[in-house]
């Protein structure tokens, strides 16, 4: 049974740029799918359409459904969009936490869609909801930061707080839009692990857009590759060899593949490099 279904999605931005051209995607429950592509290939735009944060072109026959409920059709948000958003957790590249609120309040925002409007509006969270928020924070390993303002956390910690918010939300689909693009490698790995745990233990469907194919290969069984707003590849991540990517993206493939790059001739001596690496940690 498909959880996320995108049919013939076309999006033209006000400037006239075609961001997505007739894109159709079908994702099964419990899948962990990577969306790869160079900058501007339409990854974020696709994710934002699924979450109902942007509308597709008005006169196109496009349709987005999540759990067989329509998010948008024909360029109009459905009346259920707000309801469906409760079941979709979105994780953004820039974390999108409210910096001046405490970490736990940011996580508790995840329950707003499920509790009564009055209680949510006045911030009367119940003890069990607060415990659930602490549990989510503990799962992503930042429970000790609960009382701090979100703006005081590092990028990796903020991203994990955002994942905790999606956990508390009880989301059945998590859309992660370049969640590790602005993180250092160690934080990136932690964030990807948290997402894959969410997928394996809670059977949450995860769609994650990525810049580096390495992470797609390591964490996601299936990869959808976008090029200039069209689907260039949809299949097992193991098939994404470097040669294949070069064929797919040409020079732009360098943006997607990090290792295997020949070392620079003026690179520091190994001993120096180790010292630099140590100083960096």
């Amino acid at each position: 049974m498909s959880t996320v279904r995108v049919e013939r999605l076309t999006k033209t931005f006000p400037g006239g740029k075609r961001a997505l051209k007739d894109v159709s995607v079908d994702i099964e429950r419990g899948e962990m799918v990577a969306l790869i592509g160079a900058s501007g290939s339409g990854k974020s735009t696709l994710i934002r359409h699924i979450a109902g944060l942007v509308q597709a072109d008005r006169d196109a026959p496009c349709k987005v459904t999540v759990d067989d409920r329509p998010v948008q059709a024909g360029g109009r948000l459905s009346g259920e969009a707000r309801d469906i958003r409760r079941d979709i957790g979105v994780i953004f590249q820039q974390f999108n936490l409210v910096g001046r609120l405490s970490v736990i309040t940011n996580v508790l925002i995840g329950v707003l869609g499920r509790i009564s409007v009055m209680r949510g509006t006045f911030g009367r969270f119940r003890p069990d909801e607060k415990r659930a928020a602490m549990q989510a924070l503990a799962r992503v390993g930042i429970a000790e930061t609960a009382a701090q303002r979100a703006s005081t956390l590092s990028g990796g910690q903020q991203q994990r707080a955002a994942i905790a918010r999606a956990m508390v939300q009880g989301a059945r689909v998590v859309l992660a839009d370049e969640p590790i693009a602005s993180l250092d490698p160690a934080s990136a790995k932690r964030v990807m692990q948290a997402l894959s745990e969410l997928n394996e233990q809670d059977r949450v469907t995860v769609i994650v857009s990525l810049h580096q194919v390495e992470y797609a290969r390591r964490y996601c069984p299936r990869t959808i590759a976008l090029r200039d707003g069209e689907i260039a590849y949809d299949g097992p991540s193991t098939a994404l060899s470097h040669d294949f990517l070069r064929e797919l993206y040409g020079d732009a493939s360098e943006e997607l593949v990090l290792p295997d790059v020949p070392a620079r001739s003026d690179a520091p001596e190994p001993a120096v490099a180790a010292a630099v690496a140590l100083a960096g940690t």
């Binding site: 309801d83 979709i88 001046r100 707003l112």
Partner: peptide, 22 residues
């Protein structure tokens, strides 16, 4: 941050209270 709150399915007023006012 406001979009982050909208994505959780919060109401319009809640977006303002939790996203704008702080």
């Amino acid at each position: 941050p406001v979009e982050g709150i909208r994505a959780t399915g919060a109401s319009r007023l809640q977006e303002i209270i939790y996203g704008v006012v702080p």
